[in-house]
């Protein structure tokens, strides 16, 4: 159960990253840039995460593969709704014990509302809080953790034609299900997207290539099993994610490698080695 909670935490952390709209935006988290009223945005993301180590000579190796579908809809110019549905495959090898589960993971729904906007020619600054819930649509103990969890946060975005900067803080309040309660998390994210090509914008340029560098820090509280704290859970993780993003008028392709730079987890908690995030976004 402990290992399941760590895996699920990693997956959910990445899945929430899929909520970005189909604008030039962070790869591993959200943006405050607008979704037009009545407009539908779609994003298909593929994530591979590996966690491994040797504990007292025993090999522990977990690979999580996720195909994440995201839909966003602009209800009003300020309010956008999002739905995130992951299909996951979890391949686990703990010593001589192997298991492999595939299926629907825990889905997420959330709303984002713009509270501040300051536009100027080719530039904008936006601030938008968001809130939502992760639903127990996955198979408990296999592709989901069975709980309904709430989260809320705030996004700041400053964008220009040359670069975008996004930052986010998010708190996830996890609840108890089947005696297990994953620890709450608080995270802070930052992303800089810098236009590499074209170096000079033509009047009708219709595609940009961005270099992307993102940083993510997450503080995880300890899990509880039947009310008892699991000492091998919780801690602090930090990632750096270099990436590339190619944005056209109708679609965006992007990839980033999420590299752990701090894995200060308690006890024998299994830490991630890397995550590879690739996605396509479409504007209908």
């Amino acid at each position: 159960m402990m290992k399941m909670s760590i895996q699920t935490a990693c997956i959910l952390g990445l899945l929430m990253a899929t909520s970005g709209t189909a604008l030039a935006a962070p790869i591993t988290f959200n943006t405050a840039l607008p979704v037009s009223k009545g407009e539908l945005l779609a994003r298909q993301q593929f994530i591979v995460t590996n966690l491994s180590d040797r504990l007292n000579g025993m090999k522990r190796d977990v690979t999580v593969r996720a195909g994440v579908s995201v839909l966003g809809y602009g209800v009003t110019p300020k309010l956008a709704l999002f739905g995130v549905a992951p299909l996951v495959n979890i391949d686990r090898e703990i010593g001589s014990m192997n298991s492999n589960f595939t299926g629907l993971g825990d889905a997420t729904i959330f709303a984002r509302y713009e509270i501040y906007r300051n536009d100027s020619p080719g530039k904008t600054i936006r601030i938008a809080p968001f809130a939502g819930a992760t639903l127990p649509t996955g198979r408990t103990g296999k592709t989901g953790d069975g709980s309904t969890d709430g989260f809320a946060g705030l996004i700041f975005t400053a964008a220009s034609t040359n670069w975008n900067f996004d930052s986010q803080i998010k708190y996830v309040a996890n609840t108890r299900a089947n005696g297990f309660e994953r620890g709450d998390t608080i995270s802070a994210d930052a992303s800089l997207q810098y236009r590499l090509l074209p170096k000079t914008i033509a009047a009708n340029s219709d595609a940009f290539l961005y270099g992307v560098l993102e940083a993510n820090v997450t503080q995880l509280q300890r899990d509880r099993l039947s009310g008892v704290i699991n000492p091998n859970s919780g801690g602090t993780q930090a990632f750096l994610s270099p990436g590339l993003q190619y944005a056209t008028k109708r679609w965006i392709a992007e990839t980033a490698l999420k590299i752990p730079v701090v894995n200060d987890l308690h006890g024998t908690a299994l830490a991630p080695d890397y995550s590879l995030v690739t996605s396509l976004r479409f504007n209908f």
Binding site: A22, L23, A24, L33, S36, E39, R117, D119, S120, P121, G122, K123, T124, A159, S160, T161, N164, S205, D206, A207, F208, A247, T248, K249, R250, I252, N283
Partner: peptide, 18 residues
Amino acid sequence: LQVDGMTCPFCVATSEKA
């Protein structure tokens, strides 16, 4: 038309389409 806040190809496409 002077329209502020457009920073990327997607933003422009949305406006042109409308």
